[in-house]
Amino acid sequence: MQITHLGHACLLLETGTARLLFDPGTLSAGFESLTDLDAVLVTHEHPDHVDAERLPALMAANPGARLVLDERTARQVSGIERALVAHPGDTLELGGERVVVLGGPHAPVYADVPDCPNLAFLVDDGAFLHPGDSFEVPEGDVEVLAAPVDGPWLKLAEAVDYVRAVGPSVAIAIHEGELTDVDKYAGMLGAFVGEGVRVLRPTPGEAIRI
């Protein structure tokens, strides 16, 4: 597979069968020019995961792509056809790839701050997992985990615990759009998760093969 990190939580996954874009949000850049997408998958409603202003143009440039999102996010995105409202437990066929929808609520942010639905997407029977803003641990093995490293709902120790719980072969550091020293956080994650997990911090826009 080939993965391109487009900043923060936005990743382009190319499996050889499908081109899947995850979480094109306000802290991400470069997804606007993408074409030939099979699907755009949104984990939840927060703007850093879905840019409602840039999304319509992205979908117009990709007339064959499905837009996959939860019910609450769907109500906030208007004027876009081909939207598919997904729920945890659904199994989708997107571009010939099998995508299992997992998830529940967004990880708690603080005290009485209200949560929202958060979908997690498991591609090709564990080849790739994008958890959104959650600590979703699927059954079975995961080869590549998109691992959040920063956020108001997250501290580094929790990121380490999450990667250890999932136990992927590769963890790609994401959700770093507000950090000033991403390499430091990715480096500490790599140091603490233990042997057997390769932590990658791709340069935004860089395509990596796994």
Rank of each mutant, 00 (worst) to 15 (best):
P117Y: 07
R72V: 11
R54S: 04
G96D: 05
Y110K: 15
T17R: 15
E195S: 14
E136S: 02
L13R: 14
E14Q: 13
H175K: 15
P105S: 12
N118P: 00
L27E: 14
F128M: 05
V137P: 03
S28G: 07
P204F: 01
G95N: 12
V160C: 01
Y110W: 08
N118D: 06
D161Y: 00
L58D: 12
L41V: 06
E206N: 00
E71W: 11
E178S: 08
R209G: 03
C116K: 12
Q2G: 10
V170F: 05
H175N: 15
G79T: 13
L41W: 02
A74V: 06
E71A: 15
W153Y: 13
E32C: 00
R98C: 13
A165L: 10
V40Y: 02
R82H: 09
D36Y: 01
D183I: 00
D133A: 07
E32V: 00
V101K: 02
R164M: 05
E45F: 01
L84Q: 10
G167T: 04
G187H: 06
D90G: 05
G96P: 03
I174A: 06
H49E: 12
V160I: 06
I208S: 05
R201A: 14
A127I: 06
D150V: 04
G151Q: 05
A86T: 03
D48T: 11
T15D: 03
A18S: 15
P138M: 06
L21N: 03
V77C: 07
M1D: 08
A18N: 15
P117N: 11
I80D: 05
Y185W: 13
A9L: 05
L34W: 04
E93M: 05
V193C: 10
L6S: 07
V109H: 07
T17L: 14
E136V: 08
L92S: 12
L58Q: 13
L92K: 14
A86Y: 01
V123P: 03
D70S: 07
A111C: 00
V144M: 09
T17P: 02
T91L: 11
L179M: 14
L200N: 07
F31E: 12
D70E: 13
L129N: 09
G196C: 06
A57L: 13
H106E: 15
L92W: 10
H44W: 02
G96R: 04
E178N: 08
T91G: 08
I210V: 07
V100A: 13
P204I: 02
A120F: 01
Y185I: 15
G96W: 01
H106T: 12
P152L: 03
E195I: 03
V109I: 09
V109T: 09
E143C: 00
A111N: 08
L12Y: 02
